[in-house]
Design a binder for these strands. Structure first.
Length: 225
DNA sequence: AGCCAGGCTACCG
DNA sequence: CGGTAGCATGGC
């Protein structure tokens, strides 16, 4: 068992299953991996992935509920909305001008897919979709084995001395994926580990890595010694 | 009052 | 290439 997988086991034992990605009208679905359950739920995860950029998820929930209340939580409904109405609905998540554009740009690709799984490269070609957002859509919307790296992931691994400050997104992603593949041979199990691990890192990050100095009281440091 | 949040683009050197 | 201002609202 390598360090990364050991880290996962500690977090899972501490916090348990997280049930990401939460779905409007249902919420988190702990220990139930049969999500998303429909085309519209896949779409919702993708839109949520854009909305959550540099924003708390509670704000995203408000935006998604605004869209839901307008019966506009689908690709066809959003493109037929007035752009100002879209902005109004997603306003709570911040950056509503750019995010409205990003959503409309994404929908072009989404419609062209006709239900198929997008290639990572195709997602990255969409304005407003960077590496983390692409991996978020693929991992939680399309159940693809793509590890999602975020600010907490880097912050925690840096504090533990596992990566360096200058480590790039793809370097961290590859480290996580190669380490986990060594320990988890079953592909379905590996997908679950990717989904839970990222959520667990966020939960742990909120607890010990949101304000400086980072890592005060973090028990991972002791466990990995 | 000020800092941070489940980032990305555009532009700089 | 790596580094950073700007984007905007809400919560604490």
């Amino acid at each position: 068992m390598n360090t990364i997988y050991a880290l996962y086991k500690i977090l899972y034992k501490t916090y348990g299953p997280q049930g990401w990605w939460p779905i409007t009208g249902y919420g988190y679905h702990k220990a139930d991996y049969n999500f998303p359950r429909s085309e519209n739920e896949i779409f919702e995860v993708c839109i949520g992935s854009i909305l959550t950029q540099n924003t708390t998820f509670t704000s995203v929930v408000k935006s998604l509920e605004n869209l839901y209340a307008k019966n506009a939580l689908s690709a066809t409904a959003i493109v037929s909305m007035e752009c100002d109405k879209l902005k109004e609905a997603i306003r709570p998540s911040g950056y509503f001008n750019q995010k409205a554009r990003y959503i409309l740009e994404f929908i072009k690709l989404y419609n062209a897919l006709a239900g198929k799984v997008p290639r990572r490269e195709a997602l990255l070609d969409v304005v407003g979709i960077g590496e983390e957002t692409a991996d978020s859509m693929l991992l939680y919307g399309y159940n693809q084995r793509e590890f999602k790296v975020d600010a907490y992931t880097k912050r925690i691994l840096l504090e533990l001395g596992i990566i360096e400050q200058k480590s790039s997104y793809s370097e961290v992603k590859m480290l996580m994926e190669s380490s986990l593949k060594e320990c988890v041979s079953n592909e379905d199990e590996l997908l679950k580990v990717y989904q839970e691990f990222h959520a667990l890192l966020v939960e742990h990050g909120k607890n010990f890595y949101s304000k400086k100095p980072y890592g005060v009281g973090c028990f991972l440091k002791e466990h990995l010694r």
